Computed example of a mutant assay.
Amino acid sequence: MRLNEIVFNDAQPVESYGPGFFRIGGERIDGPVIAAPSGTRTWGGFEDVQPLLDLAADVDVIFVGTGADIAHLPQTLRDQLDAAGVGVEAMSSPSASRTYNVLLSEGRRIALAMLPV
């Protein structure tokens, strides 16, 4: 088996999560979060669309973690992201974290927006 060191550049993998928080890049962030090539920051949730639209030029897909369980995204959010030309995949936050970490390690152009579990 060959092991390679993973270099994440400015983007940081999700290290852990728990009730109401995420740990990304060694920092605990309470509440909803966005992790992207430009860095990690808090997020206002589904109504806070502009930070996601700002990522459209830098990523191909945004994984949206909907909390402990998978849920449908609000149609207005999905429509705005579609109009901006960025793909969006909704899944539970634990699944979104794992998917993001794997694709980030492959150097993919992705971002993550998550609600806490």
Rank of each mutant, 00 (worst) to 15 (best):
I34M: 11
I34T: 08
I34V: 15
A35S: 10
A35P: 00
P37L: 11
S38D: 09
G39K: 08
G39S: 09
G39H: 09
G39R: 06
T40Q: 09
T40P: 08
T40R: 09
T40F: 06
R41F: 13
R41I: 04
T42C: 14
T42H: 05
G44N: 12
F46W: 11
F46I: 00
F46N: 01
E47K: 12
E47D: 14
E47Q: 13
E47A: 14
D48G: 10
V49A: 07
Q50E: 13
P51N: 04
L53A: 07
D54N: 10
L55F: 12
L55D: 07
A56D: 04
A56E: 01
A57E: 13
D58S: 09
D58P: 00
V59W: 10
D60G: 05
D60I: 00
V61G: 01
V61L: 14
F63G: 05
V64N: 03
V64W: 07
V64K: 00
V64A: 03
V64F: 12
G65I: 01
G65Q: 10
T66F: 07
G67V: 14
G67N: 05
A68S: 12
I70F: 06
I70Y: 02
A71S: 15
L73P: 05
P74E: 05
Q75L: 08
L77P: 06
R78S: 08
R78L: 06
R78C: 00
D79C: 00
D79I: 01
D79V: 03
Q80F: 02
L81M: 09
L81Q: 03
D82A: 11
A83W: 01
A83R: 09
A83L: 11
G85S: 09
G85R: 03
V86E: 06
V86S: 09
G87N: 01
G87T: 02
V88G: 03
V88F: 02
E89S: 02
E89F: 02
E89R: 04
A90D: 13
A90S: 13
A90N: 07
A90Y: 12
M91F: 01
S92V: 06
S93H: 10
P94R: 15
P94Q: 15
S95D: 04
S95I: 14
A96R: 03
S97C: 15
S97Y: 05
S97V: 12
S97D: 06
R98M: 10
R98I: 10
R98H: 11
R98N: 11
T99R: 06
T99K: 06
Y100D: 09
N101L: 14
N101R: 13
